[in-house]
Every structure is written in structure tokens, then in C-alpha cells.
């Protein structure tokens, strides 16, 4: 088991298609320190660099400059699969976090071996099945009785709950949630969000949650970060956050961004 770690970004820049007409500066010098066990919500409009930030931390692509440190260790040069042993991720698409044609127990077995090299032992054993049941039961979805069901037979909410469970199984150093409730219907989204909050607080996970939904950002997490054009433009702690309303947040955005605020999904949700 690894354990929750601190995260530090130092002057991270990410430029896509550098030197071409399509050049995009997605991250423009991000400095961020997240202490162990902190739950951070990240908001921002489309193209502000939120998702790029998570993908950069996960090592999906190399940074243009700057460093990423986990527990003070520089992991900038580590490849994605190496870093993944320490990082749990849940994506917006509920189909992204599980292997669809494999069974529930096979998927969970994969998450059990995240940190060590997989060997030629059987992946699913009776002992592991017991362990799986005890982990599936708290989800309250009855999945503990359907271990041999193929994951593509599950609903979006059930699959996202599985993804969340698999991402947190070995207590990752960092948990990265990329709009992980955005594709679900409101009731299911609320269930998944409650599960998320429960798992994060129970295990004291260092968590970064990207969301379009300002209300979610205000309700969950101890810290709120707003991004705009590849920069962190607002960084609020728990006390400042508590006093805030969605409308305050929109006003702040206007002030900080200094331009007309695009009426997009932010307001609709």
C-alpha cells in the first residue's frame, strides 16, 4: 500500500503544437502546493487548462518546462505507467475506468495489483473475492452479488462507482477526478459524489477534483482553485470558501478574468 502524498507543481508550462500556427499555451506557469490529505476543487471555463493540469500530473504527456513533485520526489521524467502506480484517476466518461468485456471481479483484481508487478498467480482467488465483496457492499449497488457479470452490462453510475473504487483501492498518493460526475444523471451524480467524499475522508486521500459545477466545487473540498487561460487566478482556503455563494464566485471570476464571462455550462448547472 502506498499512502497519500503531498503534491507540488513548480512553474509548470505545457504548450501544445509549439512553433506552429496551432500553438496553444494550455498551462502557463502553474505553481501549486497541495499538502497531504487535502481535497482541492478546481473550476474554470472550457479551455482554461483544468484537464491539462490533471493529465500533466498523471504524466499522460511530458511538460514543456517545470517540475511535478510527489512527496518531494521529482516525478517529471517518469513515464505514465510508472507514475500511475502512485496516482488514482477517474475520468468523465464512465466507460473509461473499467475494462468493458471483463467481469467485475477481474476488473477489481487488476486494481489490486496496481503497485506490484503482475505475475503468474491467478488474478481472482476466493480470498480476493471475499475482499472484493466487503469493498463493493458499501457502494449500496448490489454489485457484491454480481462478481461474474461483465462490466459492460452495468449502468453508467455503477461503472463510475467501480472506477472510483478501483482508483482508490491501493490508497493512491494522489487521486485525480476529472469531471467524474458530469456524464451521469443528477441523482446518480449525487450518489457518486457522496461516495467520493466518503472515500476521500475515510482514507485521507490527497485529491484534485476538476468540475464544471460551481456548486459542487463549493460544497466539496477544503480548497477551491479557479483557473483561467492556463493560470491559477483564484485560490481559496476553507474559511473563505464557506462564506461563498455561486453568485459570489461568478463575480470573482469576472473581476479576476477581467472580461465578459462566457455563459456556458457553468451557469446552467
Amino acid at each position: 500500500m502506498s499512502r497519500p502524498a503531498s503534491l507540488e507543481l513548480q512553474a509548470v508550462r505545457k504548450v501544445f503544437f509549439p512553433g506552429t500556427a496551432n500553438e496553444v499555451v494550455a498551462l502557463n506557469g502553474i505553481d501549486l502546493e497541495v499538502p497531504v490529505g487535502q481535497f482541492v476543487s478546481i473550476i474554470g471555463s472550457n479551455g482554461s487548462g483544468k484537464s491539462t493540469l490533471l493529465n500533466t500530473i498523471a504524466g499522460m504527456y511530458p511538460v514543456s518546462s517545470g517540475c511535478v513533485l510527489l512527496d518531494g520526489v521529482d516525478v517529471t521524467r517518469q513515464r505514465e505507467f510508472q507514475r500511475s502506480r502512485l496516482i488514482g484517476r477517474v475520468f468523465q466518461d464512465p466507460t473509461a475506468g473499467t475494462a468493458p468485456s471483463m467481469t467485475i471481479e477481474e476488473n477489481l483484481a487488476i486494481s489490486f495489483m496496481r503497485e506490484r508487478r503482475s505475475g503468474l498467480r491467478l488474478g481472482v482467488t476466493n480470498r480476493r473475492r471475499e475482499f472484493m465483496r466487503t469493498h463493493l457492499e458499501p457502494l449500496g449497488m448490489g454489485l457484491e452479488h454480481r462478481l461474474k457479470a461483465q462490466v459492460n452490462k452495468l449502468s453508467g453510475g455503477q461503472r463510475q462507482a467501480m472506477s472510483l473504487l478501483m482508483a482508490t483501492e491501493s490508497e493512491p498518493s494522489i487521486l485525480l477526478l476529472d469531471e467524474h460526475t458530469a456524464a451521469l444523471d443528477p441523482k446518480v451524480a449525487a450518489t457518486i459524489m457522496d461516495l467520493t467524499a466518503k472515500m476521500v475522508s475515510e482514507r485521507g486521500l490527497t485529491t484534485l477534483m476538476v468540475t464544471h459545477n460551481m456548486e459542487l466545487a463549493l460544497r466539496y473540498g477544503e480548497r477551491l482553485i479557479m483557473m483561467h487561460e492556463g493560470r491559477v487566478v483564484l485560490d481559496l482556503g476553507p474559511t473563505e470558501k464557506e462564506a461563498l455563494q455561486v453568485s459570489d464566485l461568478i463575480d470573482m471570476f469576472h473581476k479576476v478574468a477581467g472580461e465578459a464571462f462566457a455563459v456556458d455550462r457553468l451557469l446552467l448547472e
Binding site: 473509461a96 475506468g97 473499467t98 488474478g123 478501483m166
Partner: peptide
Amino acid sequence: RTEFGLCLRATGDNEQMIRAMGTN
């Protein structure tokens, strides 16, 4: 059905996910 076999099947089934799980 071994651990390695499960990773191999997941490579064909959802490569992004199994990479996120730390498999090369």
C-alpha cells in the same frame, strides 16, 4: 486468468485504463 493475463486482456479492452493502473 493469471494476473499478467488479466493485464494482457485489459490492454486490448481498455488500454488507457490499464495504463492508469500502472501496467506497461
